[in-house]
Design a protein around this nucleic acid. Structure first.
Lengths: 168, 168
DNA sequence: ACGATGTCGTTACCCTAGGTAATGACCTAT
DNA sequence: ATAGGTCATTACCTAGGGTAACGACATCGT
């Protein structure tokens, strides 16, 4: 079993110029308080819009997120997975149970600690991640392909910043 | 009753240079397909993280989103509100009912079409929007204040792009 | 060595919030 | 006038958050 070396975080370095962009924003929209409101609404609306594009999938958003975490970060316990996803352990336990029932995740007992069970993604699970990732990203990738390359770079940099904010 | 002139969309104009930023991204992360995966994960994770900061609120995420839409865009029907929020009419009808029960939204019959009811935000609703916006944004605004100004500009531009994607 | 305490995972149950189906009220077009 | 379309609501299902409680196991203190 190999795990994707998926690393959205890029190393930070100062004074990188961004080439050109197709949008301008007033300086007032860059102040923390107004930006917080705009960004919150935009992220919420984008999440809802993305949800529309998962109709024919066999796996839910939550299940995919957990499975992708196992694919990206390797085996871990239920509690660690819950912390990674910022949810409580009981709901994560239920999500994991669904993935185990589907044969996408395997439970292995920790030899040194009988309380813990280590969760690993199965080959079927990894196949599902790759296929689901491709299918789910299709719509968004199409929208992104229609953007100016400079706008895609804006979003790529914003992705790093959003990840940084989400993990703080 | 006055409505906030809240306009996250900035007019588009080409060839605007972005000053400096504290992050770099590899060119591969700017291609549509990889960026779609990264961006989807980042937006999903950011949404979950933001949800952690609403503990003591009296109003739910969904209710606030609907109320804010009425505050920002003015009176509209239940169906129009559902379309704006990308949900079906029945769930929106239920959300509206909760807001009416709380006295934050008022139903007015359309004088020319007995089927329709026009929803308007009340003074109490507008107060609630302003207070909730301030309270909910506090955490995010603090995170944003810690960023480099150039990074905030990246996020402000990304906000416009996300709104554009969400409404496409 | 053994009991008290703490931790991991699960189950049970509540709530919010998506979805579809069906219905009633009303409008519109033939 | 009536048939069909539209708006809003209600009823019901499912997913997925939360807390409480419990069993199994580990660890620590005496």
């Amino acid at each position: 079993m190999t795990y994707d070396t998926y690393m959205p975080h890029a190393p930070a370095s100062r004074d990188e110029p961004v080439p050109r962009a197709t949008t301008t924003v007033p300086a007032s929209a860059c102040r923390p308080a107004p930006l917080a409101g705009d960004l919150r609404v935009a992220v919420t609306r984008a999440t809802r819009r993305l949800r529309l594009e998962r109709s024919s999938d066999q796996i839910t958003d939550t299940q995919y997120a957990a499975l992708a975490a196992l694919a990206n970060r390797g085996p871990m316990t239920t509690t660690a997975l819950a912390e990674d996803q910022h949810v409580q352990t009981p709901p994560m336990s239920r999500t994991v149970a669904a993935l185990v029932d589907s044969g996408l995740v395997r439970r292995d007992e920790d030899p040194t600690d009988g309380r813990q069970t280590v969760l690993s993604i199965t080959d079927a699970g990894m196949t599902e991640v790759k296929e689901t990732r491709r299918r789910r990203n299709a719509w968004l990738a199409q929208r992104l392909a229609e953007l100016d390359p400079a706008d895609r770079e804006i979003l790529a940099r914003a992705t790093v910043l959003l990840e940084r904010i989400a993990t703080s």
